[in-house]
Design a binder for these strands. Structure first.
Lengths: 156, 156
DNA sequence: AGTGAAATGATAATCAT
DNA sequence: ATGATTATCATTTCACT
């Protein structure tokens, strides 16, 4: 699917505020509400718009501590990597995971109650697993997401 | 602000789908629509609910490559760290940044067009800056966010 | 095919209880 | 916390470009 300037503007608005009413979306991009609706619907169907998610204050849901855990696997067969990847996504402490190139295979963003929880979790989810060769845990002081879209690349 | 089981259920639903209509929120949590509205409003005011953001397919907005850049600063005065942090958030290539404890000071999740763009960006935004002592770039094969909330901690 | 204006039905917000 | 009321919004239809 090829996007034009207006589609991009819609994406930018929804990225910043996913609950912006359709008529506002239309007004801010200079198109009719029905057109805005249609364009957003098409972008959802084309999987350009993947979903809408609330951002929640970690402390409010019992996350007192965040960490980035670097994980190195012992072997790197496709099956083993995929299996570990699935394992990660099943853990409620895992906020996000990055499968990366380099000495470490995964960077895992975790949210836990406190340092006791972190220790228990790191042991159970990583250290005690056979396929894990090495982990390194970094405390996260602050985490911030950028909700701005890059400038329109041009090319219409 | 103290949350109960129902507030938590509302958060879980909004985390998964921030555009879920209020009446559906109410039905799925077993409360009246007006009550659901009131609870969500209160959680927004209390900054438990920080915002709603669309998730967009990177490829659709010209992001062909993602990387995690570890940045080590030369000095660590508060002013310098804050200044660099603000610098990061101004860059449209920065998707997220983690200020961490350890040898490296920041982990920066970046999204770029291609490897040329990555090289140019890494030079301009990191290497050429005086306060940056060292960077290390890891290619991201896959990135996945967990949109499930941890189980209700109990304690009502 | 895509857009825009108007009409309809659904939803959100308000208020009194 | 709820249910009735009012206001706002999403969605469809259709004429137009």
């Amino acid at each position: 699917m090829v996007l034009d300037r207006i589609d991009y503007a819609l994406l930018r608005l929804l990225r910043k505020n996913a609950r912006l009413p359709n008529k506002d979306l239309a007004a801010k991009t200079g198109i009719a509400p029905s057109t805005a609706l249609e364009r957003v619907r098409r972008m959802r169907e084309a999987r350009v718009l993947l979903g809408y998610h609330a951002e929640i204050a970690p402390a409010a849901i019992g996350i007192g501590l965040q960490a980035m855990v670097s994980v190195r696997l012992a072997k790197h067969s496709r099956a083993l990597v995929d299996c570990f990847h699935r394992h990660l996504l099943d853990l409620s402490e895992v906020l996000a995971c990055y499968h990366v190139a380099g000495a470490d295979d995964f960077l895992v963003h975790v949210g836990v109650r406190d340092s006791d929880h972190l220790r228990d979790f790191a042991l159970a989810a990583f250290t005690e697993r056979e396929e894990v060769a090495h982990i390194e845990t970094r405390l996260i002081f602050e985490f911030q997401r950028n909700v701005e879209l890059p400038p329109w690349p041009g090319g219409d």
